[in-house]
Design a protein around this nucleic acid. Structure first.
Ligand SMILES: [Mn+2]
Ligand SMILES: [Mn+2]
Ligand SMILES: [Zn+2]
Ligand SMILES: [Zn+2]
Lengths: 139, 139
DNA sequence: TTCTTCTTTAGAAGAATTCTAATCTATTGA
DNA sequence: TCAATAGATTAGAATTCTTCTAAAGAAGAA
């Protein structure tokens, strides 16, 4: 991590009113210095271990939620058995590889959702999530 | 339950090669004799209890999965903390009321999904799921 | 019937996530 | 610079949802 990366990540945390602790900076680096990512808590924990940063799983969860609340992450619900966190917080959609359990972005502008019927009385849209589930056919 | 309902549900189970046991018939009745439903395991268990049918939770889960495998139900993933099962197995989409945790169908023909980008190499579509998350704004 | 296969079940086990409460660290401001 | 304070981290326990185990029961075949 270069000095300027560090400063940038630190600013990102401060702007979100999160103290730039050693653990948060390590997580921010894993999350934000290699393009958009879709990651589970367990996986992020493993990566932190591999990177030589000891962080408890509780801290991983605490921070994933705090980052999400701060708008630095969003949660993508695709699998009922585990949570995925997405570093791309702009509205967009996903391909989900059912066998591998991996996500791939679909830009909002690349896919059209039209003719949403009238919303249930008294409600407003929070988000529109499209998941295109794909698999590799055994041929 | 009338005699003809019973016969109909029994046929539904037999056609799926599932023995029409007391428990399965009770579940089938709860699931299929009141229009399309979206229900969790716990809720179905409660309803069975209320209806005076003693069924273990293991049996509820066993059957929800067997029904799903047989194409009598489908699972809808909207909430990472619990699984919803849908009696409407035709392709369609959903409104999800975030506060109440309830689902409402959107007919496939009512909503347009277009311009899905080229699929990742070597994959084919398994399903396209649209979830319109709504909430009741505090005003 | 009788045999076989499937089903149900209580309770244990598993997996993901959250909680508790003690310890530690970053920030603040005298 | 250095308390004082608010916030953060952590180990391990607890919780919740779900699955597994293995024994007992019920359904279908002949
Ligand atoms: Mn869970
Ligand atoms: Mn499941
Ligand atoms: Zn994404
Ligand atoms: Zn539905």
């Amino acid at each position: 991590m270069t000095q300027s990366d560090f400063v940038e990540l630190e600013k990102k945390l401060r702007d979100a009113e999160l103290r730039p602790t050693k653990q948060r900076l390590a997580l921010a680096q894993l999350l934000y210095s290699q393009g958009n990512r879709h990651i589970t808590a367990e996986r992020l924990h493993s990566e932190a271990m591999e990177a030589g940063v000891a962080i408890s799983l509780a801290t991983i969860y605490n921070n994933l939620h705090q980052f999400t609340t701060a708008g630095l992450l969003r949660e993508v619900v695709v699998d009922s058995s585990r949570s995925y966190f997405d570093t791309n917080v702009a509205p967009h959609h996903h391909f989900f590889h059912e066998e591998q359990g991996t996500l791939e972005d679909i830009a909002k502008s690349d896919l059209t959702v039209a003719n949403i019927p009238p919303l249930p009385e008294g409600t407003e849209i929070s988000s529109v999530d499209v998941i295109v589930r794909v698999n590799s056919p055994r041929r």
